[in-house]
Amino acid sequence: MELRIFTEPQEGASHEDLLRIAKRAEDAGFPAFFRSDHLMTTGSGAGLPGPSDAWTTLAALARETSRIRLGTLMTAATFRHPGALAVIVAQVDQMSGGRVEFGLGAAWFEGEHQATGIPFPPLGERFDRLTEQLELITGYWATPVGETYSYTGRCYQLTDSPALPKPAQSPRPPIIIGGKGVKRTPALAARFADEFNVSLRDIPTCAAQFERVDAACHRLGRDPAEIVRSVAQTVCVGRDDAEVGRRAEAIGRDPADLRANGIAGTPAEVVDRIGQWQQKTGVERIYLQLLDLSDEAHVDLIADQVVPQLAR
């Protein structure tokens, strides 16, 4: 089981906060540091000092870290034109020395689109756009150097693009697709995904969605084992109940709710909870949603007292 750190900076984080946690995660031995892609708080707080652009952040972190992998859960397909996004992701992959993982989703939060003036089409059109973005970006990266790339879709068109730059990773950065849609989401995963993620859902919901992805793979003649199964869950670990309670209070959550609907409790409880996830869903990777970015000791505790038990 692999544990990764996942942050939600739109709820309140400066770049310095993200850099500090990313470097702490790298130093503690975590294999990856991810962030969300939002332009406005999704909760009830003020979200100060305000949102930050996901790919600007990852570009900066790429130059300030050396080992840890970097990515998004999920880049919003509504925010950026895919031709430009192909350039951005390839460049950050180069800047990191080939450490980028590319999560792409249809976007869901209408309020942030209204607040920034970005169009928010109906769900069906958002999935049309997501599909074409995946086709366009993978085609762009796959075009040999020296050749040009054209794409004609209903939503997007490219004509004679030099399709540069290329990512550092060959043939491309890993692609992560996720969500709970029962038809189009599994079908897209079967076509494009190296990893499939379900975030902040319970075990039965995740297990059922993984089964849909497996079925979609079989329909395409693809081995489902080629796709890594992952989930994201809120994390709250303490050496004892009192410390769990303090960390839960800091993020405005109830410890009992976190134990039931997250990865929470003492290290022993958390290891047992992760075992339940693995047994019931076959999940291989868990993104630990770290909501209090001022609590660096939380990262150290997980690395020191949870990760070694999973390795054994």
Rank of each mutant, 00 (worst) to 15 (best):
V270L: 11
H298N: 12
M1F: 05
E132R: 10
T41H: 11
A13V: 05
W55M: 09
Q91F: 05
E147A: 14
E284Q: 15
L200S: 03
A76T: 01
P121H: 03
D304H: 07
Q209F: 00
L70H: 00
P186L: 07
I118A: 05
Y140W: 15
F33K: 11
W277F: 01
P255L: 11
R201N: 12
G117L: 06
L258W: 06
A90N: 00
R69Y: 00
T75A: 15
I263D: 08
D202G: 12
A13P: 10
A303V: 01
A90F: 01
Q289H: 14
I227N: 09
A46S: 14
D27L: 09
S170E: 15
V307I: 15
D202A: 07
T138A: 05
T281E: 07
L48F: 11
V228L: 11
P171W: 10
Q114I: 07
G12A: 08
L104S: 05
R35Y: 00
K180Y: 14
V213P: 05
T41R: 15
E16N: 08
L19F: 05
S44G: 10
E2D: 13
E16R: 13
E125W: 02
Y149G: 09
D37Q: 09
R222T: 12
D295T: 04
I177E: 06
V306G: 06
A22Y: 05
I68M: 04
D128E: 15
R129H: 09
D27G: 11
E226C: 08
P162A: 11
Q133P: 08
A106W: 04
A189W: 03
L134K: 06
A232W: 00
I286Y: 12
R4V: 13
M40G: 12
D53F: 09
L136A: 11
R129Y: 12
T41S: 15
V92A: 09
A90P: 00
T205N: 01
A208M: 07
I5Y: 09
T234I: 14
S230M: 07
A207W: 08
M95Q: 10
G265E: 08
A187C: 05
D53W: 06
P49D: 12
D93I: 06
R129C: 11
